[in-house]
Amino acid sequence: MLRHALPRILPLTLAVLLAACGNGEQAQTSIRPAMVVQPQPAADSVEAYPGEVRARLESELAFRIGGKISKRLVDSGARVKKDQALAELDPEDVRLQLEAARAQVGAAEANLKLVRAERDRYQTLLQRQMISRSQYDTVENQYRAGEARVKQIRAEFNVANNQAGYAVLRSQADGVIASRRVEVGQVVAAGQTVFTLAADGEREVLISLPEQSIDRFKIGQTVAVELWSQPDKRFPGRIRELSPAADPQSRTYAARVSFADGKVPAELGQSARVFVQLNGEVPLSVPLSALTAEAGAPYVWVVDPKDSTVKRRPVRIGAYGEDRVPVLEGLSADDWVVAAGVQVLREGQAVHPVDRSNRTVKLVAKE
């Protein structure tokens, strides 16, 4: 009998034991530590923008006439002197035009010589009263037309002579060829950019400013510039130029930052960062590690001083800085924000507030 009843008794016993366990108290959830900080004032908030060292004077060099490029004498990165030849067009067409203009000058001068002699003969006949005044006036007009024709043809010859010189593209100043846009054999139009010349002299940093915060920048605003080759030094500068229109592709505004000291060892093409101090513009800032987002909406975790639980707080932020982000709306100066491990928190979770040295932080509730 016991052997037949045992299979029925065991499941019942296990069910009773599980029910007894379920009636007991749940294991207490451990309270995890959370490093908390308070937002810093705007005076400690700095925005950083990447940039590139450029020449203050950058000229786009182009031929003044069209033609086929027969020679390219320099390449990108080459150092050139003023009036140095950079490229040449096929000279055959301009040579023929010059010869044609020279021949026309000769023909016009020969015609002028003929009408001058004719006028002199008619003038003698007029003095002897052997011809009428109207006959002399006709010859005189032919002579004046011949003079005007010579002046016109000589001007056309000078133009053709100048165009022969335009077949050679020369540098306008000492500097470095920043870019090259043509190859030998390519046919270019008049005014088409062939080289970009970065003239020697003052250097600047070209940066791009976001569209949503362009109102916070102005010409003459002081900034600090850091070169990637010298990360421990910051050079004073100012915004010299600010584009009035956004780039159609990136939707950013180009700005040029000049160095306060013209002797800064900045070379063309070097990477740089421009730091902008926004005093009075952004009320508060938090570490980058305190910020998270969901569906593109940024938020932070704020600790409630009453029961040390965390609550999600949506915020509106500005442009990211080097290690902090400005908060335009959503926080006050006496809030306590979780600065690390924000990805593992959940709404209403209890935490143990600590500082960066792992010391307990006593939160003071708002009155």
Rank of each mutant, 00 (worst) to 15 (best):
V168T: 14
A245D: 15
P298R: 02
G237C: 00
G330P: 02
G175E: 08
S258L: 12
S271M: 13
D75R: 08
V310R: 05
A350Y: 11
I65Y: 02
Q40S: 14
K366E: 07
A333Q: 15
V150F: 09
I9V: 15
S243K: 08
Q230F: 06
D137Y: 11
V105E: 06
R54Q: 09
G330H: 10
F217N: 03
P287I: 03
F259V: 04
N161I: 05
Q26F: 13
A190T: 03
S208Q: 12
I207S: 01
A167E: 01
Y136A: 14
A333R: 13
F157T: 10
D261S: 15
V80D: 03
S289E: 03
I317W: 01
D304N: 12
P210R: 01
V342P: 01
P326I: 05
V310H: 08
L125G: 05
S70W: 01
K82I: 07
V286I: 13
V80Y: 00
K71H: 09
V300K: 07
P287K: 05
Q186L: 02
R102D: 06
L89C: 00
P39Y: 03
P7Y: 02
T292W: 02
G296I: 02
Q192R: 10
F259R: 10
E267Q: 15
K151D: 05
L268V: 02
I65G: 05
Y320R: 15
D304R: 10
N162M: 15
